[in-house]
């Protein structure tokens, strides 16, 4: 039995794909993200780092797929697509290039849940 456990551990170490975790970040550490995020603190910085590189009128690649996230109003107008791609299908940011930290996702979710305040 001990040999099987050791083999399983070594395989997990080699492949690294083993699932772990007790719950969502909101469940295991609610203080890991701001309780009342606003656009100016810190949502704009999250969007700037994880989204605006490809979705901005000011970026080198322009506003990909027609989405620009330079202002709070622009994000609010695209909230349906933003929620779907970032929180539901998780196809954005592109998973092969970026991993959006759970704390940033939780921040965005709370901001959405609180009506996306622009102050």
């Amino acid at each position: 039995m001990a040999r099987i456990r050791l083999t399983a551990f070594l395989l997990a170490l080699l492949l690294g794909g083993c699932a772990a975790g007790d719950g969502t970040l909101d469940e295991v550490d609610p203080a890991a993200a701001p309780a009342n995020p606003t656009w100016s603190d810190p949502v704009q910085r999250v969007v700037d780092v994880y989204c605006a590189g490809c979705h901005s009128d000011d970026s080198a690649v322009g506003a990909q797929h027609g989405y620009a996230f330079d202002t709070c109003d622009q994000v609010k107008r695209a909230r349906g697509a933003f929620r779907q791609s970032t929180f539901e299908s998780e196809t954005m940011p592109p998973p092969a290039g970026f991993v959006m930290p759970e704390a940033a996702k939780l921040t965005m979710k709370r901001w959405f849940a609180q009506g996306m305040p622009c102050d």
């Binding site: 492949l15 690294g16 772990a20 975790g21 719950g23 969502t24 998973p95 759970e102």
Partner: peptide
């Protein structure tokens, strides 16, 4: 092939690439 579980206490945050 690289993998990452960025927070072992959070479930379903792993990625394989």
């Amino acid at each position: 092939y690289d993998t990452w579980d960025p927070d072992r206490e959070v479930k379903d945050d792993e990625i394989q690439r």
